[in-house]
Amino acid sequence: MKENRIKKRKIITSHIQPDTACGLHCIQIKDISVRDGAQTIIENINLHIHCGKITVIIGKNGAGKSTLIKAILGEIKHEGSIEINDLRNQTLMNLKIGYVPQYINMEKNTPMSVYDLFAGYISNSPIFFRKNPKVYHTIKEQLRVFEAQDLVDKRACDLSGGELQRVLLSIAITPVPNLLLLDEPVSGIDKNGMELFYENIGKLKSNFDLAMIIVSHDFEFVKKYADHVILMNKRIIKEGNPTEVLNSDEFKEIFGERVYPK
């Protein structure tokens, strides 16, 4: 009996055991354009992303950053294609996308525990009927990645912004996707929560086999963590490593000199 239980645990942990980035998958986002009637919202976006790399998208409000994320998610109609290649044998794979939203629909007294929130996305075991012990265990293990395992029975609406963020991160990497999209993740989180969040992103980068696209307004974060930076204004106007982009004329033209002095 005991042996059996140990075996079971092994199976569960092995399937969440992180793989370190192999660098051998590449995701190609080709010629993405989104139009609303005659109006062009984003145009000819081309991105080439390898697993284990963080790509940060910056730009003013209304530059089409969120639209790009939605297009990659397949939520809005767009032109162009998104492919993932395995460089070892040059085959097309099925792209799995993880997403960390900016907010969730929730009111002050919504009767939804973290278990309910999590299990709704990863399991078919009806959450209104019973707490499935197997699912409960998996969720706890997944939350442990971001040290959030103690939150599992709390009401989601009682969590702080940072706590909710960690729960949403755990949901996004269950199961581990090839591409993780994060939409302005630092809004509504205090300074400490933000640092913890960046640490977690770093952890994801070094421990998991996934690529990340992050929409951010935080240039300190960009400087410290980004491998590749994209400056957007309907189309890509500058890209490169953080120093290149943050010191470029294009960046200064959009954000002004005082935001990020040399």
């Binding site: 998610l73 939203p101 629909n105 996305y121 949403l168």
Partner: peptide, 11 residues
Amino acid sequence: AAGVNESLARS
């Protein structure tokens, strides 16, 4: 799941 966040559900 769809009610909590549609984009997340879609992913």
